[in-house]
Amino acid sequence: MVKWSPLVSAGFFVLGLTACATAPTLSLKTTPIPPVSRVVILAEPAATMPVEITQPIFVTAEHGRLAEVAVLGPTGPLAGQMSADGSGVWIAESTELAYGTTYRISAKAVDSRGVANTETDDFTTVSPEKFFTGSVSPLPDTAVGIGTPIAVTFDKSVSDRAAVQRALVITTSVPIEGAWAWLTDKVVVFRPRYYWPGDITATVSLNLTGVQAKPGIYRSGDI
């Protein structure tokens, strides 16, 4: 509401304007929108040190989803696929890499805004100083007595006996109870708890790929 009132000052007649209501004021309050985190690609193994050839390879993304993954070696890309549990992890299908070899992981991920980020990383596998091998007796397709042990003889001394022994697998046509025992640092034998039953077939597998007999001495493949 505006009210007009006459004012007299020094012989002049002046119209004065008096406001009876204040003008409204506008107040703005804003809330900052948090920035979307940049998508980060994580890969295992890392490039900080040489890795074992049996090291699993997987790639994942933080703050986004993987769009493309490639792991390249000297013979081409390694096969792989996204995990079946929906966790968004890419896993290489290969369970054995090559010794002394550099691999490159290249991955592309996209965040919630559709912004893509591509990263690459290299890692190198261990380079053995030497290799070791082993032989099994009795020889394949040999008939043996009920008390004959199975012996594995290595051409290098073994200091990590637990790791090597875990790689020795005996499969029998009927269940049998027995145990391994080391005779020397190169010879380990398996004996049944009692005796071998008649007409039993036993198969010995030396799953020694990537196993160290001692630091720097590896087996290059299974036997």
Rank of each mutant, 00 (worst) to 15 (best):
A43E: 08
A70E: 13
V71G: 09
P149S: 12
V136M: 05
G147N: 07
S135L: 09
V14M: 15
F190D: 10
E62L: 12
T30A: 12
L97H: 06
T22Q: 02
I170N: 06
P138D: 13
S94V: 13
P197A: 12
V69H: 05
V89G: 00
P35G: 11
Q212V: 06
V188H: 02
G114V: 03
S173G: 05
N207A: 04
M1Q: 05
A67F: 13
A151W: 03
G88D: 04
P175R: 11
A167Y: 08
L66V: 10
S5P: 09
A163W: 10
R161G: 03
S220W: 14
T18S: 14
V71N: 10
R38T: 03
P215I: 03
S9W: 15
P77S: 06
V39G: 10
D199E: 15
A107E: 04
G134W: 00
V39L: 09
A70H: 09
G210T: 06
L97I: 08
R191E: 04
P74Y: 04
A70N: 11
W180Y: 08
D155M: 04
A167E: 01
I170G: 00
G216W: 07
T184W: 07
Y194L: 00
P138A: 09
I223P: 14
E129N: 07
I41A: 03
S127Q: 03
V144H: 05
G64Q: 03
G100I: 01
Y194W: 02
T201P: 02
D121L: 04
T18E: 15
A84P: 05
G11F: 08
V51E: 13
F190C: 11
V59S: 08
T120D: 02
F12C: 05
G216P: 07
E93A: 02
A116K: 00
T203S: 10
F123D: 04
V115E: 15
N207T: 00
I53K: 06
G100L: 05
A21M: 12
I146Y: 05
V89K: 01
I146C: 05
A61S: 10
E68I: 07
T101M: 11
M49V: 11
P77A: 06
D111E: 04
G100F: 06
D141Y: 12
A70D: 11
S9C: 05
I41K: 02
A46I: 07
T18R: 13
K186R: 06
A23E: 03
T95L: 13
I33A: 12
A10R: 15
E119H: 03
T18P: 11
P192D: 01
A47S: 15
I57L: 05
V115T: 11
E68D: 13
G100N: 08
S83L: 06
D185Y: 08
L206V: 03
K186I: 01
P128C: 02
T102M: 07
T118C: 15
P192E: 01
A181S: 14
A181L: 13
I176M: 12
F154A: 04
A213G: 11
L168F: 00
R193A: 14
Y194E: 01
T48D: 11
L97R: 08
S5R: 14
S127H: 06
A116L: 01
Y103D: 12
A67T: 15
R166G: 03
V39S: 12
F123Q: 04
P50V: 00
L15S: 15
A143T: 12
P34T: 08
Y103N: 11
D121N: 06
W182T: 13
